[in-house]
Write a protein that binds this DNA or RNA. Structure first.
Lengths: 199, 199
DNA sequence: TCACGACTGTACCAATCGGTACATGGCGCA
DNA sequence: TGCGCCATGTACCGATTGGTACAGTCGTGA
């Protein structure tokens, strides 16, 4: 036996730092090349370590995958939290801003990874399954809060938020599949008109 | 060398029949167990043939996968074509009918497979890539036709159709992830109200 | 009856996989 | 200096993979 790591949850010292650096590189690689046929050897070769080291730092492939999924989820959420909300913006403007952030070409790999992980999670793959929990609810809360804050009925607000989330994801899948940015943007504008009134 | 098959595209005789039967069983199995970690041996054991036979009838795993994807696509489209459209139905009623068909529990495996295949296709997997071509356009045509037939401006109809398709897919993903049928149905009703007017 | 072609199973191959054992090298500390 | 700990690499293991070679079975037509 080898590789004993008595550390608990708390990341600490050089070990945790190297671990974080590896998982970051791993997410980059996975966002670019997919997670389906990932092998420890190829990943290691791509990010400059031996597959032995990946086992060393993460225990097993499955734990590494779980870490990758978690980090990818966190990155996705960061897109929302990095929104600069200047005062005086209408809800439609905020939505437009978020949409432009989500569809930035730089994030295409990450969004593809999102749908890929969804596919695995829907099959019950244990490393991706936790995603299902927050896939909807985690995003619903801020959206519902925004709607209610604007004076909407809470019950209706929940339905509207759920619909908005679904439309964004559906159009995002459309964009990734077709690459027709103009067409998808036009559909999004149509949605905003229906959603926020015919401004 | 073995297994020479001079037949062209046309399926014929017992060979084509057995082939079709095998691919049908394969799609059933894949809809139930996923396509990601499919192996010829396990698939063969599940549907009662040796993996040798699968290679014999399909040439390679990739060609079998391509056939599975094609058949799954065809089944998906059949859902739409089997819609019984009685006269006197409002567009919203037709949409509701289609939604209820798509979300029938019996089709859950097939819908999960749809998202799984999307994930693979977005990564450029050759057996799934052709899906991307028709993922949007194939569904847009009938929807646009319906909208225009109802007297809408063609340009606007295209945007509306694209939006409707996206909303359906986003809510379908929501339903598969959360299983919250009541919540998703309510969001769909909200969408129909926005889409077809506040009837 | 015999030969031939289609169908199918068994045994096998090289490649690749995740994971492990062991050796090596560098660092801090006594 | 020498001891021990951590990090890293190399070599290996058993399992599984897609694919192939070969042999056997069966029906059919001459």
């Amino acid at each position: 036996m080898d590789d004993s790591h008595p550390e608990g949850e708390a990341e600490q010292g050089a070990h945790g730092a190297r671990r974080a650096q590896l998982v970051d590189a791993a997410v980059d690689h996975v966002a670019a090349h997919g997670i389906a046929d990932l092998s420890l050897r190829r990943l290691g070769a791509a990010i400059g370590v031996s597959h032995r080291m990946l086992i060393h730092y993460f225990g097993s492939k499955e734990q590494l995958l779980a870490e990758i999924v978690r980090t990818s989820e966190r990155r996705q959420r960061d897109v929302l939290s990095r929104l600069r909300l200047e005062p005086g913006l209408s809800p439609a403007d905020v939505a437009r801003l978020l949409w432009r952030q989500l569809t930035a070409p730089r994030l295409a790999g990450q969004e593809r990874l999102f749908f890929e992980i969804c596919g695995h999670a829907l099959r019950g793959r244990p490393e991706a399954a936790p995603v299902l929990e927050g896939l909807v609810t985690d995003w619903l809360e801020p959206l519902v809060a925004a709607e209610v804050g604007a004076g909407a009925d809470p019950a209706v607000a929940r339905n509207r938020a759920r619909l908005g989330l679904a439309a964004v994801r559906g159009l995002l899948l459309d964009l990734l599949a077709t690459g027709d940015r103009a067409g998808v943007d036009a559909a999004m504008e149509e949605f905003l008109r229906l959603y926020y009134g015919s401004e």
